[in-house]
């Protein structure tokens, strides 16, 4: 028998079970979606504590919405991406702009850095560069190139046209490249992926 019956159930069935009062369904939904929700919020906000608050709020909206969820109309992950993005944008608007010291800087690593540290350095550098992008560009680039979603789904998440998604990702990548690609030589990367 399956070790965890709930782990095999689709989101629609779990939401229906939760709405009927099944606590195990809530655990399964949390295990399945909270890591992605938290990570997406952190990528959009750049701060762990804020991201955790957004993740909790997004999951709270999920619990509230569960009785009204209509199976087959949308993917739950798409719905959650949209909720997380809206919550993050609200917070960023309230904060107006992040203070400069809140933006993580790329690690100062010299030439000869070991390969294991290169990836960590790159993640840190990309994270800092993403935080310097306008919110919509950041969201589009993350959904497209980190989450690996298609333009159609991103357009549905962001509530814009596919052409607008393409424009946002293109402008976002241009700005990221201007920030990051020049660092390659400075940091002495010996990249074997190119």
């Amino acid at each position: 028998m399956p070790r965890d019956t709930f782990a095999e159930l689709p989101d629609d069935a779990l939401l229906r079970a939760y709405a009927a009062g099944d606590g195990q369904a809530a655990r399964a939904l949390t295990a399945r979606h909270l890591p992605r929700v938290l990570t997406h919020a952190r990528r959009l906000l750049g701060q762990q504590a804020e991201a955790e608050d957004v993740a909790q709020e997004a999951m709270l909206r999920l619990w509230r919405m569960a009785p009204d969820w209509r199976p087959g109309e949308a993917k739950l992950s798409t719905w959650l991406y949209r909720v997380v993005a809206n919550l993050c944008l609200d917070r960023l608007r309230r904060a107006r702009a992040l203070p400069l010291e809140a933006v993580p800087e790329p690690l100062d690593t010299g030439p000869g850095v070991v390969r294991a540290l290169q990836d960590a350095t790159r993640v840190d550098a990309l994270h800092g560069a993403l935080m310097r992008l306008p919110g919509r560009q950041r969201e589009a680039v993350v959904l497209r190139h980190i989450e690996g979603l298609g333009n159609d789904e991103i357009a549905a998440i962001m509530g814009v046209s596919v052409e607008a998604v393409e424009s946002l990702t293109a402008r976002g990548k241009r700005a990221l490249a201007a920030q990051l690609v020049g660092q390659r030589d400075e940091l002495g990367y010996e990249d074997d992926r190119d």
């Binding site: 290169q118 993640v123 990309l126 994270h127 990051l180 992926r193």
Partner: peptide, 11 residues
């Protein structure tokens, strides 16, 4: 040009 950074974050 950005793919190494994207790949690192995906991984």
């Amino acid at each position: 040009a950005l793919e190494p950074w994207f790949a690192a974050m995906r991984e």
